[in-house]
């Protein structure tokens, strides 16, 4: 564990907590893309299925449980919570996110480290995470009013993967040259997608 990765995990955790706070405190999910939240839930389920088979560390297991349960809780709130679900702008959140799932799955079948169920699920989750923010970015560009908490949520989500890229650079120089090309490429695409958001976020 290095500082970049720990900072990345904390920033990621913080982004989820900010979103949970927004939804819980304001009982509203206006401006939040439910499709992005559903994609993140799929990302975590596909990536953390080794939760019960491989024990890496208490930290690793606890964080996996936190990410899976928080993303499921947010999707549940946006679908089932009587007050929150009313504030979901369904007609605005129109990105065809099924296309993203299908594309990530096809990519994972072709580009993976080993053609095994575990590795294909892992690659699928990495590719899907890289593009999962798209419905949310489209929603932000449509909606005039980006409320602070939603803006902060997206900001921290973009920052977390940038920290992970620093983590991969650090590990490259300290731990030898593992083939991380899947993580590298996806991480760069993921952080790149936020570039225009960061541009407007800081200009506003």
């Amino acid at each position: 564990m290095n500082a970049f990765r720990f900072l990345g995990d904390m920033t990621h955790l913080f982004s989820v907590l900010v979103l949970l706070l927004k939804i819980y405190a304001t009982k509203s999910c206006s401006g939040v893309s439910r499709k992005t939240q559903e994609l993140y839930m799929v990302v975590f389920l596909a990536r953390y299925m080794d939760l019960f088979t491989d024990y890496i560390s208490l930290y690793n297991s606890v964080m996996k449980v936190v990410f899976i349960t928080s993303s499921a809780a947010i999707v549940w709130c946006m679908r089932r919570h009587p007050q929150v679900r009313r504030t979901y702008d369904k007609e605005q959140d129109t990105f065809r996110h099924v296309v993203l799932v299908a594309a990530a799955f096809v990519l994972a079948l072709i580009f993976n480290e080993r053609f095994t169920f575990r590795e294909i699920c892992w690659a699928f989750s990495i590719y899907l995470e890289a593009v999962a923010i798209l419905p949310q970015l489209v929603l932000l560009q449509r909606g005039r009013n980006v409320d602070n908490l939603t803006g902060q949520y997206v900001f921290f989500l973009g920052a977390y993967r940038a920290f992970y890229i620093l983590n991969w650079i650090y590990r490259y120089f300290t731990e030898g040259h593992h083939s991380r090309w899947i993580s590298w490429l996806s991480g760069l695409v993921q952080t790149g997608l936020y570039a225009d958001f960061f541009y407007y976020y800081f200009l506003r």
Binding site: D9, D50, E113, H178, S179, S183
Partner: peptide, 10 residues
Amino acid sequence: ECLAAPKDEL
């Protein structure tokens, strides 16, 4: 050698 990246990250 292209070793598979360890899956110890979140």
